[in-house]
Design a protein around this nucleic acid. Structure first.
Length: 429
RNA sequence: GCGAGCGUAGCUCAGUCGGUAGAGUGCUGCACUGUGGAUGCAGUUGUCGCGGGUUCAAGUCCCGUCGCUCGCCCCA
């Protein structure tokens, strides 16, 4: 076996068919984001470690970030998430920006975790944030943006669902059970782990954090209260807006959604794929009204979410929802080379066709026509052009439709138009 | 960090009780010298991850090691 240096653990090679998927996601994300009026932005891939120390969870910085010293000894991190950069960028120009901000981004992030299905150390993430508005309607817009993306890429509301909860509502409910605010963080963690532990383990965990049986029963009741959202003015308005935005089917209340990050203050949401055995969340987000103040800016409310590319890719693959033609050449026209003498003539024809706006693949060497047709098939071309001695002598070209096997000889000047006609017909059929 | 599984041809994998390294696919050629996908025939492909041990004999058993995958933890 040849000696090939291994790729870095947790990274992916984007072969053309993989990059096609990546670009396809990017394209859909862009279209959906822009349809809601969001502007694309980006932060640097390298940030000072201090940026994250200020705000992100301890574990994310200390355990899960790629950190290295630069030549002057400053600690630099490969960005593990975007929100701190976003917040810094806003704080830097806080007085000049016009609010609300609707910003989106799609780019690479790095986390030092053990790679497995749907998770790597280098991944892409879609971020969308709505900053400067503190309203349930703004939260609903975020949920709608998420839902419209799912709809666009072919995921139905049966296959994927955005589950929503509200931290303030839950805090109120916990207080009713005489759970003091300082203990609520632990209880949130308990709720977060409901689906991951067995009943027995979960009960033991509840005892461990010091809940009495009455409180424990109260929490169990809470987690099954599907209509609890009606107690929250915020959520009532939220769902009314979701309804108006036309994505009611995709969005559902769940008292079990809590989210790991500490900085969420109100509405939290998380999308899960229901029809596959992918148990990871597809995307997640929430309202963070204290974040800007926390990094030294003036107080400014915000709501946002992130979606990693790896889980959604697994989901789409399992459901067979990717477009068929990934891996094929972008050129739908292949110009054959009849023999050595006519090769330059074939090249000239390729140039003419490109100038007419077609994507054209020039076969690189003279070869048997049969082999060239086979090659055309393999790369996904729809049409092959033959320029032999007869055609050259008569100022013609032969155009072969590879699908129907039909071939016609036309005047060279008309070739581009005829080809375009065939491509349009194939496309429509 | 913890646990499990897997490393054999370019790719997907089989390999029984330890006894000469296999299949499919791909690729090349021919049937087919201006017309492809099908079919047939022929050819091509190996440090069995690496190192050690047991044995007359190891792809196979044992130990170690590296790599990958999948869980847990955490998250997207």
């Amino acid at each position: 076996m040849k000696k090939i240096i291994n790729p870095v653990k947790g990274t992916r090679d984007f072969y053309p068919q993989d990059k096609f998927v990546n670009s396809w996601l990017y394209q859909n994300i862009r279209e959906v984001s822009e349809s809601f009026g969001y502007q694309e932005f980006d932060g640097p891939f390298l940030e000072s470690i201090d940026l994250y120390a200020a705000k992100s969870g301890e574990e994310l910085v200390k355990e899960q970030s790629f950190v290295f010293p630069d030549k002057s000894g400053n600690l630099i991190a490969l960005r593990p998430e975007l929100t701190p950069s976003l917040v810094r960028m806003i704080a830097q120009q806080q007085q000049q920006l016009y609010y609300p901000l609707r910003w989106w981004s799609f780019g690479p992030f790095w986390r030092y975790e053990s790679p497995q299905k749907g998770r790597g150390r280098e991944f892409f993430q879609w971020n969308a944030d709505l900053v400067g508005v503190d309203s349930p309607q703004a939260d609903a817009e975020m949920a709608a943006l998420m839902a419209e993306f799912f709809k666009k890429i072919g995921l139905s509301s049966v296959q994927v669902k955005v589950f929503v909860n509200n931290r303030r509502l839950m805090e109120g409910e916990l207080s009713k059970l005489d759970i003091s605010p300082d203990k609520q963080g632990k209880v949130f963690r308990l709720i977060d782990r409901r689906g991951k532990l067995s009943d027995k383990e979960w009960g033991a965990y509840a005892l461990e954090i010091g809940l009495d049986s009455k409180q424990f029963d109260g929490i169990k009741t809470l987690l099954n209260s599907e209509n609890l959202w009606k107690e929250s003015k915020e959520l009532v308005q939220f769902f009314s807006a979701v309804d108006a935005l036309g994505v009611k089917d995709y969005v559902e209340f769940s008292p079990r959604i809590i989210r790991g990050l500490d900085y969420y203050t109100g509405t939290v949401f998380e999308a899960l794929a229901l029809s596959t055995d992918v148990r990871r969340s597809v995307s997640g987000g929430g309202r963070y009204d204290n974040l800007l103040a926390a990094v030294g800016g003036d107080p400014l409310p915000g709501v946002g979410f992130a979606m990693g590319d790896m889980v959604i890719t697994v989901v789409l693959e399992e459901l067979g929802l990717f477009p068929e033609n990934r891996g094929s050449s972008p050129a739908k026209v292949l110009v054959t080379v009849f023999d050595k003498e006519s090769q330059m003539a074939s090249y000239q024809l390729s140039v003419e066709l490109r100038q007419a706006g077609l994507k054209v693949y020039s076969y690189p060497t003279p070869d048997k026509l049969g082999k060239q047709f086979r090659h055309a098939d393999r790369i996904g071309a729809a049409i092959a052009i033959i320029l032999g001695p007869d055609e050259i002598a008569n100022q013609q070209v032969a155009i072969k439709d590879l699908k129907t096997r039909e071939q016609k000889t036309v005047k060279r000047a008309e070739a581009a138009a005829v080809i375009q006609g065939i491509l349009d017909t194939d496309h429509g059929a």
